[in-house]
Amino acid sequence: MTDSTDLFLVLCAALWGAATGAFLPRAAYRFAVGPDDPWRDTCPQGHAFTRAAGRSGRAEGRSARTTGSTGPATGIGRVTGWTGTATGWTGTATGWIGTATGWIGRARCGQCTPDMALHGPGAVRFSVATAAVCALLAAATGTRPELGVWLLLAPLAVLLVRTDFVVRRLPDVLTLPLAAAAALLLGVAALLPEHAGSWPTALLGGLALSAAYFVMFLISPDGMGFGDVKLALVLGVALGWYGWGTLFLGTFAGFLFGGLYGLGLVVLRGAGRRTAIPFGPFLLGGALVGLLIGAWAA
């Protein structure tokens, strides 16, 4: 590839990451609950989240179009009818925009006062983080078909990092579908020309890493959570795509990052050996390092 093609690819990947990252805050708010609690579907005051603005706009649109359809009996009525119809389509468009806006950015409660209506993290940090991850993956992978897989998985990986850091939880509704999606999509990538990985090794890598983490979970449940075991499925599949060396490198990097973080807690905050830390973010960070090096060297 030429330098201009490389730059364009990285820019497109960054824009994709920024756009998809803007959809994560609402999900992050829903998933930020304890292990035994259901996912949030209300604001702290108990109001259910709705997209009433979008539905209202579409209802107004239908009403205006109905009024417009009764107008063409006279010339003036015809003008009024077309005006009503146009207003109806405008109302409908506004409704759809309102609905789309309800999915972007922070969780929004329509029943709370304006100063209390927004809940959860802002969208900027998610967009920046996801854009950076996607840009790095694009720079390392280039135009190979597996890049599409990495770009699809990256936003949910960022969501997992935030969720585990906040509540030390890796939701099954994210980790298990991610593993299945990674295996399926890499299988498709393996059928395309110019791919740089091995699908059988990816599948074996997922099984091997998950089995190894499961053994560590049985030995020390306090040190390795079962959510980490399920996360290992997708990490092993992704890292195994570029071979066993990449799998070992990404796994080692994850443990190294987690160990350095734990050491920092001991030095700076006086944490003890039994202090619980979220391990998932470091496993994901190590996997990112492994993927970048594996893709670059492939």
Score class of each variant (00 low, 15 high):
W296F: 12
F252H: 05
H195P: 01
A212C: 11
L147T: 04
W150D: 04
G258W: 01
W16S: 09
V234G: 02
G54N: 06
S4G: 03
T113H: 07
D3V: 13
R26T: 14
L186W: 02
L249A: 14
R40M: 04
T113S: 14
P281A: 07
L291Q: 07
P221M: 03
L207K: 01
A253H: 01
G34K: 08
A53H: 08
G91K: 08
T246L: 07
W82N: 13
L265R: 12
G88H: 07
T251R: 01
G84C: 06
L283V: 02
W103C: 11
A139S: 08
V128I: 14
C43Q: 06
C112K: 10
P193F: 05
V267G: 00
T5D: 07
R55D: 14
I104S: 04
A238G: 09
A287S: 14
H195S: 11
G262A: 15
G84P: 07
I76W: 06
P155F: 03
R144I: 03
A276D: 13
C12S: 13
G286C: 07
A287N: 01
D36H: 06
A93C: 10
G205I: 07
R26K: 10
A179D: 01
T163N: 02
R51P: 00
T99S: 14
G102K: 04
S220H: 07
E194W: 08
A73V: 15
L292A: 05
W244V: 14
G240S: 08
G148E: 05
S69Y: 04
H119N: 13
T80M: 12
I104L: 12
G75D: 12
A181K: 09
Y29M: 02
Q111E: 15
G142H: 04
A52F: 10
V289M: 12
F279H: 11
T246K: 05
L284D: 00
V167Q: 10
L203H: 03
A22P: 01
F257T: 06
R58I: 15
I104K: 03
F252P: 01
Y242Q: 10
W96I: 15
T70L: 15
P278T: 09
L247H: 01
P200G: 06
G294R: 08
W89T: 10
F165V: 13
L153C: 10
M224S: 07
R125H: 09
T163R: 02
V289T: 15
P35N: 03
F23W: 06
R168Y: 01
V10G: 02
P145C: 10
I76H: 10
G17P: 04
A183Y: 00
A73H: 13
G88W: 06
F126D: 00
S4L: 12
S56W: 12
R78Y: 00
G286L: 05
V124E: 08
L268R: 15
L15C: 14
L192V: 03
L152K: 06
G205A: 03
F126E: 00
